[in-house]
Computed example of a mutant assay.
Amino acid sequence: MDSEPLFKPLTRDALTQRIARILTDAIVSGKLKPGDRVAESVIARDLGVSRAPVREAGRLLESAGLLVSKANRGFFVRTIDADDLDSLYELRLCIEREAAARTVREGRVAQIRDRLLDQIKEMVVMSEDNQLIHQIGGDLQFHRLIVETSGNLRFLAVFDKLASEIQACTALIERVFDEPGKVARNHALIVEALDSGDEDAARAAMDYHIGVAREAVVGHFRKLEGAADNAL
């Protein structure tokens, strides 16, 4: 009798998700740059799959805000401008500062303290090994853990909807700052504020953390846009 297969065949949904993950990694790592065309035929050929799951993955990333579709031309990596980035950081700040305060108020910090510290250690190691993609995932998990622990399901739903855009922004931060591990280590200030038991301190720590990133990344984009305008 034939033995049972070790792995079950991938369903269309699973294949689509895997392709979407591959494309997301390419975008946040800079392999696919803003404005680049995402050619279904080329990607399907490179991955050894049909065009259908590639097209479905493209639609998923369009709904996530990473791709845009143009009639009769296909998908393109979304071009992010400074105002759009600033709006995203403002929304993140509204959610995460109150999630941090709520986590303190509900007495839930102890539930996640060790996991947050472990996440920071992993991010520092990955930054030293130049594992950008994994560091971005670790950063996202750190912030998501606080939002989830706050107990506000609306906060979490919005955070998850923005996850891909947040990942892209994290990649931009790593390219703007000179020290790859600086962003990872700065997360420790958030944990210290949560440990203080002071809601205002938790808000202030998140204001600072996201505010520094917002100023650096948005400022960087405004300079690029200014240079492009002057070149016209």
Rank of each mutant, 00 (worst) to 15 (best):
A26S: 12
T79E: 03
R175N: 00
D178S: 03
L91V: 12
A20V: 01
G137P: 02
Q135N: 09
V183S: 07
L117R: 10
D86W: 03
V218A: 07
V38L: 14
A201Q: 03
R73T: 13
F221G: 04
A168L: 05
Q141Y: 07
E98A: 04
C94M: 11
C169L: 11
K70S: 09
P34V: 15
F159Y: 04
P9G: 11
E192R: 07
Q141M: 01
D2E: 14
A99K: 04
V54D: 10
E122K: 07
L156R: 03
L194C: 05
E148L: 14
A188R: 11
D83P: 05
T79R: 01
A204G: 04
R21D: 12
R12S: 08
F142Q: 00
A64W: 15
P180R: 15
M126V: 01
H209N: 11
S50K: 14
A71T: 10
S196R: 02
G65P: 08
F159M: 02
E148D: 08
V104T: 13
I43Y: 12
D114I: 12
C94G: 11
V68C: 03
G211N: 08
M126E: 12
A231K: 05
G226H: 04
D86E: 02
A168I: 15
D46Y: 03
L140F: 09
K182S: 12
L172N: 02
N152C: 02
V104P: 03
M126H: 02
V212G: 00
V104N: 08
L189I: 03
E62W: 11
Q167T: 09
R37K: 15
A213W: 00
R73K: 15
V109H: 05
R185M: 13
D25A: 15
V42N: 04
H134R: 11
R214L: 02
G30W: 05
A39C: 08
L88F: 10
E225Q: 06
A231H: 02
V183N: 13
I133F: 00
